[in-house]
């Protein structure tokens, strides 16, 4: 019996992650979404260096001009380059999307995992609290917060994150609850493994799929909420800018200069498309039911 290394003699298996990636690669819309998203993130990161004009650069004499060779997306009433403004606005919009989602993710996953794993009375109390928070008119509270404490970016992250964690907590809890009853977790218990090992090796890897999917779908809804608030004049504050704010300005002058509304609108919608298609694609790819056939 030779004891040569396993890797030389073993056939390589395909893990569920690799499986999902193979499936995702066949989903053209999701791949396009992923590509677009990477492109947008790169552009946002590099904006200070690649933006065609300065953020503050204006040309009052020129005023609003339609798209042209110098200004691909035209200029606004102050003669500022729209492409530059949209790039800078995208930075803020994407940042809000990612950071607020990260806040929601952190709170939601920990809260949901604890409730689901501990179960029993603790779970009942924790979930009751989530139910109560669900019943609160959060949209109104966020508006109120922004009115009362002024339009503060940091506050916005936390306010939005605080709303979105509820659903994340419910998803993670449900997932953990059902995993806890799975036979392989019971088998781990009967092997005498410690709680921490069971959580780390058997529970967490199996909850990642739904969490990734929901995270991908939370980012667009957060971005939408930010744009919504900015549109009402309650979100991002000038001189900072976001797509919601640009749309707000665009609406004021849309009769004369429709491109000021249309281009930021396209930027926002395309990003939302990309994220939603990617999220749907991930859901299909990670769904265990589709991996069985």
């Amino acid at each position: 019996m030779d004891s040569n290394s396993l890797d030389t003699m073993a056939e390589k298996g395909t893990s569920l992650w690799e499986d999902a990636w193979i499936k995702l690669r066949k989903n053209r819309l999701a791949l396009m979404g992923l590509g677009l998203l990477i492109f947008l993130c790169l552009v946002s990161l590099l904006t200070p260096w690649i933006a065609p004009y300065g953020y503050e650069e204006q040309d009052l004499l020129m005023g609003a001009t339609p798209p042209s060779a110098e200004h691909w997306l035209g200029t606004d009433v102050f003669g500022r380059d729209m492409l530059t403004r949209i790039m800078w606005g995208g930075r803020v919009s994407l940042m809000v999307g990612f950071i607020a989602t990260a806040v929601a993710l952190a709170i939601g996953v920990i809260y949901g995992a604890v409730a689901g794993y501990v179960g029993g009375r603790v779970d009942a109390v924790m979930m009751r609290l989530v139910d109560i928070l669900y019943a609160l008119p959060f949209m109104i509270f966020i508006i109120l917060l922004m009115v009362v404490f002024g339009r503060n970016l940091l506050l916005l992250f936390f306010a939005i994150g605080a709303v979105e964690w509820l659903t994340m907590a419910r998803i993670v809890r449900g997932q953990v609850m059902s995993l806890r009853k799975q036979e392989f977790v019971e088998a781990a218990h009967s092997l005498g493994l410690s709680q921490w090992i069971i959580i780390r090796r058997h529970i967490i890897p199996n909850t990642l799929g739904p969490v990734i999917v929901y995270t991908t779908l939370t980012i667009p809804s957060v971005m939408l909420l930010e744009a919504f608030l900015s549109f009402l004049g309650l979100g991002i504050q000038p001189p900072q800018s976001s797509w919601g704010l640009l749309i707000n300005y665009g609406v004021e002058t849309m009769e004369e200069y429709p491109w000021l509304l249309i281009f930021p609108g396209i930027a926002l919608s395309l990003t939302l498309f990309a994220l939603n298609f990617l999220g749907d694609g991930l859901r299909d790819a990670l769904d265990p039911r589709t991996s069985k056939d």
Binding site: E183, A187, A188
Partner: peptide
């Protein structure tokens, strides 16, 4: 004392290779 379960689909962690599944109890104990 160990257990063997009914459902061969649910009783193995889908994200662990056979090697990992079998090595876990050996190393842990």
């Amino acid at each position: 004392m160990q257990m063997i379960f009914q459902d061969p689909y649910a009783s193995l962690n889908p994200r662990m290779t056979v090697y990992e599944t079998l090595a876990e109890p050996l190393l842990y104990h």
